[in-house]
Every structure is written in C-alpha cells, then in structure tokens.
Design a protein around this nucleic acid. Structure first.
Lengths: 143, 143
DNA sequence: TTGACAAATAGGAATCATTCTTATATAGGA
DNA sequence: TCCTATATAAGAATGATTCCTATTTGTCAA
C-alpha cells in the first residue's frame, strides 16, 4: 500500500471521500495541474490535456478544475482578470476578500506596511507594491 | 485657488498633465469611483453613472476607468475573476505578480507566514488564508 | 462478471464582460 | 469663434465561461 502522501494518492483519496468518480479525464486534468508551475488558466490546462486526450472538451477541464478548488486540491488565486475591480484608494492598504459574496474590504495596518520583502525577491524582481490579501467570510456571510 | 489635495483637484490636475480633456462623462465616472467603497467593477460604475447620464455608454465608462488606472487615479485590484488562475500548491505561500506579462511567481517566507492579522480584522471576519501579493516587474520584463 | 444507475462527458448554444470599429460630437487652444 | 485632436455612443466582434442535454461510463451490489 502507498502511504497517501504523493499528489496522485491525495487526488484519489479526496475523490473517494466525496464520491467523485475517478475518470481518465479527471486524472489527466489533475496531473496537468499538479505539474504546472505557472498558475494556469482553465484554457492553459485544456491545451495541455488535449495533447493526451484530443477529444476532451473545454467544459470538462473547466468543471474539473472548479471541482478541485471546491474539494481542496487546488486554489483559485487572485488575478487581474475580468471583471476588473477598480480601487480609488492609492494609499497603501490591504484587502479582505469574502469567498462567499466576493466583497473586498479595505483595511489599514502600520504593522503590515512595515514588513520587509525577502531579499531574494527584491533582487530578482522590481517590486512596486505590496499588499496582504486575506480570504475568508465577512460579517454578513459567516452566519 | 484650491490647494489641489481634494480628490476632484487631483483628478483635474492629472488630466491636465496628460492632456486629457475634462469631459462631463470623465468627471462623472471619477466622482462615482471616488465615492465607491466596494471596489466596483466597470459595470457597477456604469450603473451608478447612468443615473446621472442616461445616455452614457458602457464603453466610455470602461475606457475611462482603464485610463484612470494608467494615470494613477485608481488601481486595478486583484480579484477572483475570469480567466480564473488555478494553483495546485495548497501550502501557505506568497505571490509576485508581474504587471507586464501577468506571470505569477510563488515564493515562500517563514517571516511573512508568522505575521499576525490585526485583532480588529480577526474579530470582524473569519480568515481562512492570508497571502502577501507583490506587484511589479519580473526578471524578464524589467529590462 | 454483470447490470443498473447516478455521475460525468462532449459538443454546441447561450451568456457575460470586454474590446474594437466607426461615424459623430466636443473640449480647449489659437 | 474656429479648428483639430480627442472623446463619445452604439453596435458588432471577441474571449472566456457556463448552461443544456443526449450519451457514455465508473462503481456498487448481486
């Protein structure tokens, strides 16, 4: 028996826990995502998986990725995608993002503003802004 | 003369600096955004402005907001919008986002992980994850 | 191993949000 | 006031996702 700590075993056990069928398509989407280093979009995963499954549909890939994010196999990360959200506050501040209603709440914290960016990052990249992004449930949604 | 520190004066001076005409539509979009507390989408701003300018087009509102983000009157903030970006790494980590090519690079920092969330936030919200999001230019794009 | 059935898939239509195109209108300087 | 570069409105086009539905397929139990 395998010990369940390698990614594929995690995938299998999460699917079984939730009564999700282990289909070749799901397995292929999982592998493609697990190998990705670049926070791919659904379309990027689709392009990869299509090499192995020429007949797979975009919808299947997209649905599968959303399922993965619901069962803890992946996370939807913040991006600058559509619909864009505009913020008129140009002072440094931080965000709380409610995963239920999508509302973004500003907050200010001198302590957070003071945080140093790791030296390695400062060397490799030119940083123009830093922001702490918290995710969770807002007052209205946590009831 | 006004001293240029109220939002409308900042708007007027930024437009003049860039030779952008001060049209009633631009002014209305600026006011609507400046008053917003909720990091609105272009459509949300459009719905607000339309009450005052029933004939304004969505395109004008959207274009204007993008111009504002280019001249430093607003910022496009991170959201969970389309296209979604998926991340298979479920361990706590942080992101560097390149504003030129859109690439998201992971980085790890025990120092950042140790940061305390302000007490007020912990009281008002249920926080399930925290992440530092840096924006700037990546190695390839900063040349 | 074989059915039965709930779940998953493929493919196309529909939707949502944005961007492009173009003809018309207008702000702001001469 | 006139001129001209900009900006606007309206609709078409695009890009990305989600919905719909007929068909297929894992999985469980006999």
């Amino acid at each position: 028996m395998m010990n369940g700590t390698n990614p594929m075993d995690v995938f299998l056990s999460k699917c079984r826990q939730r009564n999700l069928k282990i289909t070749p398509q799901r397995t292929a989407v999982f592998s493609a995502l697990a190998d990705a280093e670049d926070h791919p979009s659904a379309d990027a995963v689709y392009q990869k998986v299509k090499k192995e499954f020429p007949n797979i549909s975009f919808d299947t890939v997209n649905r599968t990725l959303i399922v993965f994010s619901e069962i803890g196999l992946a996370e939807v990360v913040e991006g600058q995608g559509d619909p864009r959200r505009f913020d008129p506050r140009m002072e440094n501040h931080h965000h709380f993002y409610c995963v239920t209603c999508g509302k973004i709440t500003d907050f200010f914290s001198e302590e957070l503003d003071k945080i140093e960016i790791p030296t390695q990052i400062e060397q490799d990249f030119t940083v123009i802004s830093k922001r702490m992004v918290l995710k969770g449930y807002c007052t209205d949604c946590r009831k």
